[in-house]
Design a protein around this nucleic acid. Structure first.
Lengths: 215, 215
DNA sequence: ATTTGATTAAAAAATTTGTTTAAATCCAAA
DNA sequence: TTTGGATTTAAACAAATTTTTTAATCAAAT
């Protein structure tokens, strides 16, 4: 076994990035696309254009590599959320706007990330689950408080659970179901993108209507 | 190799259903729960309480068994949708009510089906994609017509794509994200069920608000 | 009673796949 | 230029898994 991780020295005789980085990117692509079990180390090596043994040389094992990728993906996924919701200076409406826009930006760039996350949370539970709650605890706390206040002042009757389910359902679900929606409704990639762009304004508006109550 | 598929004769010396059926049910459970790659034929055999060789005896291969299960799952998933949307006698509001209720019933019973379907559609494409469009073509046709009519009469400005994205997002997404929502918002299984029950009325109401336009 | 299909246990064969080894190559510093 | 460690490669290894085979048992139908 290699005594120590190779220094981040020079290398990268081929084209772009260091080989370590190329392996990570290839792994990220395949893991997020097909999950852990369905991804073979050989595929990662081929995608990265490197020798199979290099994968273990740099990352010790498939599992270690996967854990690394998963954690990075995960951090990115909830990063924006937490930041927006713990901002004291923002009104609820403003938060919603920012979260929706943030997700649409993010998911346009990494469309297969949410499905990956959802799969992992269902299957794995242990590792992810704990970190999930920890990292989102402050945001949840602040959000609940804000909703409770609004309820007291009679500005809404909407339960926090339903609120979150709707917010994330309306913003991230279209990306999760992108292939399905596109096929069933006969929508091109460009059209889909345009629809998502529309939703930057629509979703906050709809959420607003839901919050205000039943007419 | 077995020359012909065993007749569906009697047998079933153990407890319930024919062994063929028991294998299928075990396979359905594991495949939908963990996906193709992560499921071992040994696990299926054990879950079904039968000998490993029987799996190949009845279904030839893991892949064949999987394809069978997938198609059946898939049919069930879109069955209700199609039926409701092609019913000429129903108003749009009534359709929405029925689809939402249908999904909540269905997904309460088979919570991990949608994630399975979404994964398959993303990964596989070819086989599923074609059948998907074929089976839903009449429903789509009728639904579009109805929406176009409503637009003409000024009853709505909502695009069909956004309509469907919202409808399915609000009804099925909570189930897809169930583990995530439960952990982050600290919700028990019973509470979750209660929330979903609430949504039978809430979602149609929200959809109604969205259709009517922006206040 | 004989036959036939269903079922099991065990093992073997065949494949797939993660990991390791041993040797070659490369590069910067001595 | 030589040297030594980092990097890379081809090949093999080892373990897991799917599939096939063989032989034996059992239950029902002929």
């Amino acid at each position: 076994m290699p005594s120590k991780r190779p220094a981040s020295g020079r290398s990268a005789k081929k084209k772009d990035g260091s080989t370590e980085e190329r392996i990570k990117e290839a792994a990220r692509k395949l893991f997020t696309q097909k999950g852990f079990a369905a991804t073979r180390t050989r595929d990662i090596a081929e995608e990265a254009g490197i020798n199979l043994a290099l994968l273990n040389y740099y990352f010790r094992s498939k599992q270690k590599l996967f854990d690394l990728i998963m954690m990075e993906n995960f951090r990115q996924f909830i990063g924006g959320l937490s930041a927006n919701f713990t901002d004291e200076t923002l009104t609820m409406e403003e938060k919603v706007k920012r979260v929706v826009n943030g997700y649409i930006d993010f998911l346009t760039e990494f469309p297969d990330l949410p499905l990956f996350i959802l799969n992992e949370i269902q299957g794995n539970s242990s590792e992810l689950a704990v970190r999930l709650r920890e990292e989102l605890a402050p945001a949840r706390q602040m959000f609940f408080q804000q909703l409770v206040d609004a309820k007291k002042e009679g500005r809404t009757t909407l339960d926090p659970f339903q609120f979150v389910a709707n917010l994330v359902g309306l913003s991230v679900f279209p990306f999760v179901a992108k292939p399905l929606l596109q096929r069933v409704l006969n929508v091109s990639d460009e059209q889909f993108h345009a629809y998502m762009d529309e939703r930057r304004k629509l979703v906050p508006m709809w959420i607003g209507m839901m919050v205000k109550g039943k007419p």
